[in-house]
Nucleic acid binder design. Structure first.
Lengths: 218, 218
DNA sequence: ACCTATTTTTAGTTTTGTCTAAATTTTAAT
DNA sequence: ATTAAAATTTAGACAAAACTAAAAATAGGT
């Protein structure tokens, strides 16, 4: 399994997560920052290896085997992210780039030991669930902060956008996973929110609220 | 800097360490388990980049820049080895293969944090010195056990052969770095040694003794 | 100094993963 | 149902890193 093959499987998995049915060639090309013709080439190779279903012009989807492989890479990526934050004091906006490299290290023992060292974490620094060794995936019951009604509250458990700029913005405004957030008011005009968080009131834009996940509590 | 280029620089460094002067194409090919023609190709590319001195038929040697790069890779390799042993309970015969992959991870912050996590170790699990961030290399003052005279003693500080079979043999016979070894007798016939180690007497072959380093004390 | 054996390089090919440009298929709109 | 637009695939090319086979250079022995 080459690095490039692994990256394709990961991309297909991410694109397919949520939407059912096959993924388009163009969508994969965009995700991978490559050209559609390259995607077609890779689709054929992955189909040969039984990792994807592929019929010309009909899009691409992961086989069970492909899904297992993708999950194992995502597992590695997210465990390394936790390692970097918990053991090496990386900030959550720094981990992605390095984890993109570490996820391709081939050693089952290594990742199992990292898992144990971290005490078998269930979520990565962005709140995304870490697949288990056997590919089980527990997506958390969560909703976007922007979808919460006024006067309800919830615990911040994840980000939708995990780009460095967004994460840095959150740090600067002391918004962190685990914080309890209460919606005080919603502005009709621009849908910005007045919130109470850790004892302080602040106003956040819809853009921000629609990229923050909050635990759905009963 | 590609992975392959890094591996060539590392190989050239290891071959050049000890012997002065340029390294032969064949020697590199053997070390890298590749063909001489491939080495020639790479020599040209590395020369282009100012990492090696190369003149046709005249052998290859590292430039200062090439040496710095090689040392940084060796530094990463050895730090990862220490990490695997100290933090993840790998045995010293298991670490090389994984470190061969980890040494190519590109993140200065990562390796500096690993260094700090390990409390800035000076030697790797096989007793080899770890280059500092600025490429300083402190080779330990050591000698082969086979070169020690009778009735002298020393502390075991390294292995010359760090292959898995040899390391496993040492484990099985409870020979570990840090042990104090006293030469009781040397057999003229096969140059095998009678030694006293950790309170127990045992006999080891010349083959073994010539692959164990002992600290040169006074 | 010459000849041979060894070493090294060159030339041409392969594989992997990418690209561009052209051709083809599908989709969607009228 | 046609047709234009969009998406996808094919064909051909390229770069990296390896290979094989053949050519060239060096080194050693007499």
């Amino acid at each position: 399994m080459t690095r490039s093959e692994e990256n394709y499987l990961k991309a297909i998995f991410h694109l397919g997560n949520g939407e059912p049915g096959p993924i388009t060639t163009n969508a994969i090309a965009e995700q991978m920052e490559t050209k559609p013709s390259s995607v077609t080439d890779m689709a054929k190779k992955l189909a040969e290896k039984g990792l994807v279903h592929y019929k010309k012009y009909q899009g691409i989807s992961l086989t069970d085997s492909g899904t297992r492989t993708a999950l194992s890479i995502i597992r590695k990526h997210r465990l390394w992210e936790v390692f970097l934050v918990k053991k090496l004091d990386f900030t959550w906006d720094e981990v992605h780039e390095v984890a993109e490299q570490l996820e391709h290290i081939k050693s089952e023992k290594l990742i199992d030991k990292i898992d144990a060292l971290l005490d078998f974490p269930k979520y990565d620094p962005h709140g995304d669930p870490i697949p288990t060794k056997d590919g089980k995936f527990m997506e958390r019951d969560k909703q976007l902060l922007s979808d919460m009604p006024i006067n309800t509250q919830g615990v911040c458990v994840g980000v939708k956008d995990s780009s460095a700029p967004f994460l840095k913005f959150l740090d600067k405004n002391k918004i962190a996973l685990g914080n309890t957030i209460k919606i005080l008011d919603k502005e009709d005009f621009d849908q910005s929110l007045q919130i109470l968080m850790e004892g302080k009131e602040l106003r956040i834009s819809h853009q921000i609220a629609s990229n923050l996940y909050v635990k759905k509590n009963d």
